[in-house]
Design a protein around this nucleic acid. Structure first.
Length: 376
RNA sequence: GGGGAGAUACCAAAGCGGCCAACUGGGGCAGACUGUAAAUCUGCUGGCGUACGCCUUCGUAGGUUCGAAUCCUGCUCUCCCCA
């Protein structure tokens, strides 16, 4: 994988860049739709690619390992072939599930013992086997196995948690270096910076990951219950340490405003379930603000979903019709909401990139931050 | 014509003397959702008030009772069975 830093915006840390992978190029900043189980929920890959214009999507180690299982994915020739997606894929390591499925797992030095949420069966994730599984899945970018520290953790817990993540990282990197890709193309490995909301821990974590000279670096453990101001501060602290010439990935973030603020602070890559999950639940993000399409006020508004929208669904369907679909619990409603939101997210980061290249990012961003948070 | 059952809030449906402004569903209204155990979850849903509360409700008109959606009587309407 190669990263080229093309431009930095005036009065900002915002960057435009280009990542080259075996499955094609990614223009940054970029938003990566989440496809946990090998599908961007409710959206055909044809639309993910041609309409939404996603350049890379996510998969999840924990979920794919449990179902369909490594054997099937290997037999298929890797995840790309299995799901029919020929652009880049990034897999999360399962570290987030260690956090979100917290009540059915146990952390030890060795790794995380957990029970399947599907059938209760017992499993063990270690830094080593998580790298192995990601080799088998065959994503272009694979992630370190970390503990995603809760946003409200106290300093002592966060510090010990970080140290565990750091020891796990060293084991991940060792395994990564000892193993080869299985499908004939290279895979890049990204470490993850933890440290909760404590600046000194974050700085220490950033220095630690930077010492390994990886292809890119991720910031994790944000948007997990901490204050937004803390999140922004942590991004600043970490990005001050991470090398300029490598992509920076802010995991699991976020709202359109979070993304704009992240870009402004030097983040290159984002992923989040919000556009799909919220879209599926009737909340539409637009450049003019947020629409809760289920609200009564749209019942006879026959204007297009989003006149400024870039997706075909934006012009094709009216607000009143989309509201009707949600009221009637028709699955097409969830699909339209998901497609619209993803297309908006991809438009947002693409436009941010253009503004960075044009040197006009800062002013544009300030204006967008005012607009996108409004309730329509 | 004979026999039986029933009328409860937007709909369906509990309640069968005080703990009932009334269980529960549905519908409706609103909110939440951030590396997806989520096509999910939460709240509200007689009126007024932020709230303690106050006022008007259980087909309808009366009655019994300290007290009625609950008991009694008349009326109106609906449904089922037999002719």
């Amino acid at each position: 994988m190669k990263f080229e830093l093309q431009c930095t915006a005036p009065l900002s840390k915002a960057r435009a860049g280009k990542i080259e992978t075996a499955h094609g190029q990614i223009d940054t900043p970029i938003f990566m739709p989440v496809g946990t189980l090998g599908s961007v929920k409710g959206v055909h890959f044809k639309d993910v690619k041609e309409d939404i214009k996603a350049q890379i999507i996510l998969g999840n180690t924990y979920h794919l390992y449990l179902r369909p299982g490594v054997e099937i994915i290997e037999k298929a020739g890797g995840l790309h072939k299995f799901i029919g997606w020929d652009r880049p894929i990034l897999t999360d390591s399962g570290g987030f599930q260690v956090f979100s499925l917290g009540d059915i797992r146990k952390l030890t030095e060795e790794g995380a013992r957990f029970q399947s949420h599907i059938d209760g069966s017992r499993h063990l994730f270690t830094p080593e086997n998580v790298v192995d599984i990601q080799r088998s899945i065959g994503a272009d970018i694979i992630m370190a196995f970390d503990e995603c520290t809760p946003g409200d953790a106290d300093y002592d817990y966060a510090s010990k948690s970080l140290e565990l993540t750091q020891r796990w990282l060293e084991r991940c990197i060792k395994r990564y270096n000892e193993t080869e890709p299985k499908y004939g193309y290279s895979q890049s490995f990204f470490p993850i910076v933890q440290g909760c909301v404590y600046a000194d821990l974050r700085k220490k974590a950033a220095e630690h990951v930077a010492s390994f000279n990886c292809d890119g670096y991720a910031i994790g453990g944000l948007s997990v219950g901490e204050k937004e101001a803390d999140m922004y501060e942590m991004i600043e602290v970490v990005n001050a340490v991470l090398p300029e010439n490598k992509p920076r990935y802010l995991m699991g973030v976020g709202t359109p405003i979070n993304i704009l603020e992240g870009i402004d602070r030097g983040i290159d890559m984002f992923d989040c379930v919000m556009p799909t999950r919220n879209g599926r639940n009737g909340m539409l993000f637009t450049r003019n603000g947020i629409i809760n399409i289920k609200n009564n006020k749209w019942r006879d508004d026959f204007s297009p979903i989003d006149l400024n929208g870039t997706s075909f669904v934006d012009q094709q369907y009216s607000k009143a019709y989309l509201r009707h679909l949600f009221q009637a619990k028709e699955m097409l409603g969830a699909q339209i909401g998901s497609i619209h939101n993803l297309a908006f997210y991809l438009w947002l980061v693409g436009e941010a990139r253009q503004q960075i290249l044009a040197g006009t990012f800062k002013g544009w961003k300030e204006q967008m931050v005012k607009q996108v948070g409004q309730r329509l």
